[in-house]
Design a protein around this nucleic acid. Structure first.
Ligand SMILES: NC(=O)c1ccc[n+]([C@@H]2O[C@H](COP(=O)([O-])OP(=O)(O)OC[C@H]3O[C@@H](n4cnc5c(N)ncnc54)[C@H](O)[C@@H]3O)[C@@H](O)[C@H]2O)c1
Ligand SMILES: NC(=O)c1ccc[n+]([C@@H]2O[C@H](COP(=O)([O-])OP(=O)(O)OC[C@H]3O[C@@H](n4cnc5c(N)ncnc54)[C@H](O)[C@@H]3O)[C@@H](O)[C@H]2O)c1
Lengths: 251, 251
DNA sequence: CCGACTTTGTGCATGCGTTCACAAGCGGTA
DNA sequence: TACCGCTTGTGAACGCATGCACAAAGTCGG
């Protein structure tokens, strides 16, 4: 039911494909950072930089240098001691680990405010994520091209997803429709879902979901201001108690 | 320079104001989940639900029940053993901890594809995050209302932010402009930034930044498909075990 | 060819976050 | 009132991630 990480796997690693087997051991947090390193490295490559040290790269990526080296060590040892890393080499290794050696076709469902923005965004194709299908229930939208791609009707989702080999589904519908859309994507064989609707999606174990919840992001920020305000209050007022039943306000 | 967590803090926690002092101890990850619980609880309240058990709530929020109880314990003990939690009570306590007892005015900078979507989105005001200011460099956009709010020129950012008491700045400009916009927001006194541009922002210690990077999200998804594909390959090929050089995985 | 210098890769300790498991506490019932 | 069953709240164990510190490994100048 629940987590099921390593499944059956009685096996230890076979000798040869150490490269990909290694992938399983990469911490989730490190994967997210590898994607950031990749972006930074790509930028450097574009500017003609050919080599980079862990110190430089870590600064550019906004992380600790030791952490960066450890992250890179998860994917192998491709640096040169005393020198640093070859940018090209690193880029290609990270791309391989992240599975970016092939394109991942993306479908956007719900062509409203957000869906339009996503469909019109030019940043995805260049990074290996071409948007190849758009879906909506609204008959008035069906057939109209957005960002160069005509909107399909949601009822055709299975056929279209299979035909265009969609591997990532993006949900940008209103919350009530999200679960149903998700189910449809799953039955169309989509195994990766990026969800913008503020809803907890229910999916089978073999489907990976990531959510982007802007309200939550803002609330986290809100928490930090509140905390900071309280700290300030504690310090300046001397914090002589009184906090009793809570509801302390701002300085 | 770098992290600076607990800083000067020679003080131990004073006795009384346990309520807010507690806030400092809440793990970052728990804060994010609290926001999710809040959303779920609000939905329940709207449907007339008055009480909920940790089991029910955790299922609705998609997390482990024990984790949920621990998360709630960070903000105090407001449940009733043998019964569960009062929805109203929980909502108001979480809101207080997250600093949602007052509104947080939001400014969006960069009214392009994404900026339009954000400005038009109706979900923020209802959650205590009214969008009160929009900025762009494009003269053609300035003055035009989007989502009911006229776009201001980026050069007026300081005055407008101060006037409207903006507490959260959202960056939706092209990457090259992001750092400069960020700097302007900071000098306008904004201490919370939500960044959509794929750029690592440099900010002073007293400013909180959260980033939303869709390309990174997709690359993480990509990693998981690749990993899964490899596992499948390993299994189907037989992978009859006997790992040689160690690196045991999980049972 | 050697020695000094630079930077990687990683073992280890530390801290944070998650999960388990259970005593404590409460409402309901007889 | 006393008991019973249910659910909370949390101590403690575990596992993962972070950061330090240094040996290993390579470059470069002489
Ligand atoms: N716009 C934003 O900035 C923003 C911010 C945060 C979260 N969100 C979330 O993103 C989602 C989309 O937001 P939006 O502002 O674009 O909404 P929207 O109302 O503008 O667009 C929703 C679109 O989905 C379509 N739709 C509805 N039901 C559908 C179904 N069953 N199948 C396919 N399409 C369907 C509608 O026809 C509409 O075109 C919402 O869940 C919202 O909460 C949006
Ligand atoms: N649209 C998406 O779905 C999407 C997805 C992922 C990431 N992003 C990122 O979000 C950002 C915005 O994307 P977009 O598609 O809306 O871009 P866009 O080009 O449509 O809009 C950018 C807007 O910013 C304005 N701008 C430029 N420089 C500015 C400055 N110095 N000050 C104020 N405004 C300025 C432009 O005039 C334009 O209106 C980009 O960094 C992009 O990489 C967007």
């Amino acid at each position: 039911m629940a987590s099921q990480r390593g499944e059956g796997e009685t096996t230890t690693t076979p000798a040869e494909p150490a490269d990909r087997e290694r992938a399983r051991a990469i911490p989730e947090a490190a994967v997210a950072r590898l994607a950031v390193y990749l972006r930074v490295l790509s930028g450097m490559a574009d500017q003609g930089v050919t080599a980079v040290s862990s110190e430089e790269l870590s600064q550019a990526a906004g992380v600790n240098a030791a952490k960066l080296r450890k992250d890179l060590s998860y994917i192998g040892s491709y640096g040169t001691r005393g020198v640093g890393y070859d940018v090209e080499v690193l880029v290609s290794h990270i791309e391989r680990i992240l599975g970016l050696t092939r394109n991942h076709s993306v479908a956007v469902v719900g062509i409203g405010n957000l869906g339009h923005a996503l469909a019109n965004y030019g940043g995805f194709p260049g990074r290996g994520f071409p948007v190849t299908a758009l879906f909506d229930v609204d008959e008035d939208l069906v057939g109209i091209p957005v960002g160069g791609i005509p909107v399909s009707h949601i009822d055709d989702i299975t056929a279209v997803c299979l035909e265009r080999e969609v591997s990532i589904g993006v949900i940008a519908t209103p919350p009530p429709a999200a679960q149903s859309v998700c189910d449809r994507l799953v039955s169309a064989g989509v195994q990766c879902i990026l969800n913008f609707a503020p809803v907890v999606l229910q999916v089978p174990d073999n489907v990976e979901v990531r959510k982007v919840d802007l309200a939550v992001e803002m609330q986290i920020l809100s928490f930090h201001v509140a905390r900071r305000a309280d700290e300030a209050a504690s310090v300046s007022v001397g914090n002589n108690g009184l906090g009793v039943d809570g509801m302390v306000i701002r300085p």
